[in-house]
Structures are given as structure tokens and as C-alpha cells.
Design a protein around this nucleic acid. Structure first.
Lengths: 185, 185
DNA sequence: CTTAACTGCGACATGCGTGTAGCGTTTCTG
DNA sequence: CAGAAACGCTACACGCATGTCGCAGTTAAG
């Protein structure tokens, strides 16, 4: 556990992470030098903060996992009414995904084997779904994995979609299509 | 226009393209040597058939565009009943996407700027959608781009989804969720 | 069967991204 | 203000994927 970073170092780290996500979402093979330039620092600084490219990606992953844990905790998927929890979850998660698209994609959708998404986040989401299922919001005959995939896919498209709509509107569009798509007939 | 390839050369080309898609879908940065090994040929043979890595990818793109043109033409999106056209389109396109996942993804979803998807394919699909809209299958207040994105996303998830379901079943699942998700209230 | 095409193999050149190190300068922190 | 921390810059080493070439052996085609 090294001592705390100096203020300017902390600033650099943040700028590097932001630039990394911004560039990598357009080109996953973007160079560390390109990232450094976009962040307004030298390449050596990137290497000073992150031992390797892999370490930089790991930092992005852990960053987004931290935020997602917060998001899920705040939505209270075990106690809140499923519809409310789902709305809250979708709303905030979408905001996060718009800002940290690459990092969120990097964690994987939880349906793949090599996912680095925090299991706690996934379980929170699945509890919200299963409770929504019990309340008749989701058809029980649908495969859980399939439902999860649909949700993640809609979230992704909503985040990628151009246009200045705010996250709240986008989230509403996602849940509208989702709940009718997987809802009762 | 060079003279026709010899039979074994044609075979090699096909094996390389198949191996390329199979490997690249798992790792887009897979080496030409890895591809060559998977195809059962030497790396030099890959370079003989495809001048560069870019040329190999271009070949995959054009291959999938050819097939997609066929698919769209066969579905007759301007004359056939929208629901029928949509089913046929989804069914065959999904089969294609399962076999050539990387290549199809490479063409882009048509909603992005750098898409290499044949415009003819895209227009065929959009006509099917607009006619479905006129028949009340799709809510007219939804953004065309958003609807298209949803469709592509569902297709993708259905193709990626593990499990031995045949393309027909998967296509039905896609259209089920899609038409209810974007259908009238 | 004879020719031309195709292939595998090995060698080589090249460019590029990554990672390391040192040094002088700037910028926080107490 | 003094010391430490962080930075920019430069240079270097290294690995690796790409692309090219030639040659000898194999295979399809007429």
C-alpha cells in the first residue's frame, strides 16, 4: 500500500483514464502514446501510473466495477418494487455507460465466461429480474440468459445511439422496449 | 481480371476465410500465422491469396455482402407481406451470421458512419420495416434508427447465444421480442 | 505425361508498440 | 522556502506481426 498520490498526480491519473476510455471506445488498439497525447501527458507518465497496458485496462475495469456496485446498492434490488428498482438501475447505469463505454464493455456482459464484471453486480441485477418475473412483468417461460442478453444489448445500443437525448430519456426507451418485448402477451 | 484459380487454390482460399472468421470472432487481433495454422496452410499461402491483412478482411466483407444481397433479394421486401419478409429475412440472415459472425460484424450495423455494409442490403431491410410500420406492426412514433439498432442488437445476441438451438428457433425468438418490443400498445 | 500452378519452408527486412532508464525541470506540500 | 514528488524528454532494447523472396517439392489440368 503505497502512500497517497500528490494532487497533480491524481489529476493526471484521472485524465489518462478518461482519455483511454474515450479513445479505446473508437479504436480498441489505440496506442498508449495516442492516449497520452489525448490526456495531455507524456507517454512516460502513463507508464509511471500504470505499469503496463494491461494494468491500465485493469484500472478501468475496477473503476467501473466500483461505480456499478454503488449503482446496484442504491437501487436496492431485493427490497424496492421491481419496476422502481429496474428504472433506477437502468437510469444510472446508462449514465455510467455513456461516460465509460469502453470500460463497461471491457467488463463483459456477465453472460460470457471471461467476464470481469463483479459478480455482486450481476446478482443484484438478476434478483431484480427474478422479482420482476414473479410480479408478472417478465414472461416466466423465457430463458434467464436470453432475457439478460436482451437487456444488456438494449443498454448498449441506447448508450451508443447518437443524439443529445439525456440518459433519463434513453433509459425510458430501453425499458419500454424491454418490458414489452419480454412482457406478458 | 486474373485467370481462374486452380481447384486446390480455391479450396485453400475457402479454408483460410473460414478459419479467419472462426479465430477473429474470438480474438480480433489474431495473427495471420494463427489463422494459417487453423486453416491448415502455411503463412506464406495466406499472403499469396491475400496481399495483406486488410485484403483478407476486405474479402470477408465482400463475401458476406454477396450473401446478404442474396438473402434480401430472396425475401422480396417490396412485394411480399411484411411479416413474411421479415421472418424469411431474419431466418436466413441469422444462419449467415452464425456461420460468419466476425465478417458480418465487420460490415457494421449500417447505423455507423464507417459501415461497409452494402447499401442495397440496408435499403431492403428498411423497406421491410417501413412497410411493417404501415401495417401497424411497428409503432410509427419510434425513431427509425432506434428500431434498426434494436433489430441488429437482437440478431447479434441471438447469434452469440450459446446452445444448440437451430437458426429457425433463434429467429423466432428474435422476432418475438422485437415485434412486441416495438409493436403497438 | 508434361507443363504450369500451387504449396511449404526458411530467411530476411521492416515498422511499430511496449517497457525501461536517466536527467534536468517544474510543481506540489509542509 | 526547502525537499520531495511528479513530469517531460530522449534514448535504447526488445518482441512481434507484417510483408517479401527464392527454391524445392507436390498437385491439378490439358
Amino acid at each position: 500500500m503505497p502512500r497517497a498520490l500528490r494532487a497533480d498526480a491524481e489529476r493526471s491519473t484521472a485524465r489518462i483514464l478518461e482519455a483511454a476510455d474515450r479513445l479505446l471506445r473508437g479504436n480498441p488498439e489505440a496506442t498508449l502514446e495516442q492516449i497520452a497525447d489525448a490526456a495531455g501527458v507524456a507517454r512516460s507518465t502513463v507508464h509511471r501510473r500504470f505499469a503496463s497496458r494491461a494494468a491500465l485496462l485493469a484500472a478501468l475495469t475496477s473503476l467501473v466495477n466500483d461505480r456499478l456496485r454503488e449503482v446496484v446498492a442504491r437501487a436496492r434490488p431485493e427490497t424496492a418494487p421491481p419496476l422502481v428498482a429496474l428504472h433506477q438501475l437502468t437510469d444510472v447505469a446508462l449514465t455510467l455507460k455513456v461516460d465509460w463505454r469502453f470500460a463497461v464493455d471491457l467488463t463483459g456482459d456477465g453472460t460470457t465466461e471471461d467476464s470481469t464484471l463483479d459478480p455482486a453486480v450481476l446478482t443484484g441485477l438478476t434478483t431484480a429480474f427474478s422479482r420482476a418475473c414473479e410480479e408478472g412483468l417478465i414472461r416466466p417461460d423465457l430463458d434467464t440468459d436470453w432475457v439478460l442478453r436482451i437487456y444488456f444489448a438494449l443498454m448498449h445500443e441506447a448508450a451508443v445511439r447518437p443524439g443529445g437525448e439525456d440518459a433519463h430519456t434513453r433509459a425510458q426507451d430501453v425499458l419500454d422496449v424491454f418490458l414489452h418485448g419480454v412482457g406478458p402477451r
